[in-house]
Design a binder for these strands. Structure first.
Length: 263
DNA sequence: ACCTCGTCCTGGTTGC
DNA sequence: TGCAACCAGGACGAGG
């Protein structure tokens, strides 16, 4: 999403900002936030974990979290009942924000608040060179929660959600219920590789479109065609042919191969 | 401090 | 066919 929407936003000034859903900026008044955003010029569109960071020349930043069904579009999306906000840019183009379930959030932060806000919520970026198996082990050390729950915690690592955790655990041959703090060196190295593999493949396929996710031009991602574990109820494991088990871990639907990913 | 669970929403699917 | 129950990519706050 960041890669796809950045060209439409970078260098552009927000001439018009309309926020149609007051939930979007809660607890702040959408009219006031819109007024503050007007006139800001985008320096760059950045990302940390699942937060899009629209950085302005002023040093302020708009943090956009898409949650389950949010998407930024490179058109005005006129007549779409789920359009929650509309930006009009200084080159005459529009960027619309659509979000069926209205879980997504827009938060405008002053320059000094941006990094502290992110740092309190989002851990290390797993695709950066600094991410190591050893560092992963340190983040998981002493944690007694199920491995899957620890990986879904965004402070452990940035960006893993329900799909990519199940995918990564399948690649790593690790059970989602494994106590997070008990992995040995070999298991940590497998998990480290697996997390990168799952995320890199998801990026290459431009995400997973289960129903709502769309790229800015309205097209779908294709990662859902290459799921190895997520959602594969009643299907055999690609490695060993064993039927997948569906369980609930950390309150989320979870799929794993009982043979390849033993407890 | 850590962990689990309910909640915030809308709409599609499933089961009776 | 009709309708209620259940389910969905996430994160946060309350409570244990």
């Amino acid at each position: 999403m960041r890669r796809a929407i950045a060209p439409a936003l970078e260098g552009r000034r927000f001439d018009g900002v309309e926020i149609f859903d007051p939930r979007l900026t809660r607890p702040f008044d959408p009219v006031e936030v819109a007024a503050e955003l007007r006139g800001e010029r985008v320096r760059e569109v950045d990302r940390r974990g699942k937060y899009l960071i629209v950085r302005f020349d002023s040093g302020r930043a708009l943090l956009i979290h898409l949650r389950m069904t949010g998407s930024l579009r490179d058109s005005d999306l006129a007549d779409d009942v789920h359009r929650r906000a509309l930006l009009t840019l200084d080159d005459g183009t529009s960027v619309a924000y659509k979000d069926t379930r209205r879980f997504g959030t827009w938060l405008l932060l002053e320059p000094e608040s941006v990094e502290p806000y992110i740092a309190a919520r989002v851990g290390e970026e797993p695709l950066l060179p600094a991410f190591t198996a050893r560092g992963l082990g340190e983040r998981l050390r002493d944690r007694r929660a199920p491995l899957k729950a620890a990986l879904l915690d965004q402070r452990t690592l940035a960006g893993l959600g329900n799909i990519y955790v199940d995918e990564a655990l399948w690649y790593a041959k690790l059970n989602p219920l494994r106590e997070a703090g008990t992995l040995d060196g070999d298991e940590l190295r497998r998990l480290h590789r697996a997390i990168r593999k799952a995320l890199e493949l998801g990026l290459a396929r431009q995400g997973s479109t289960l129903s709502d996710y769309r790229l800015p031009d309205g097209s779908s991602g294709s990662m859902q065609r290459e799921f190895r574990a997520y959602g594969r109820t009643g299907e055999p494991c690609d490695r060993c042919g064993t039927m997948f088990a569906k369980t609930r871990v950390g309150g989320r639907s979870t799929w794993h191969c009982p043979a390849c990913q033993p407890g």
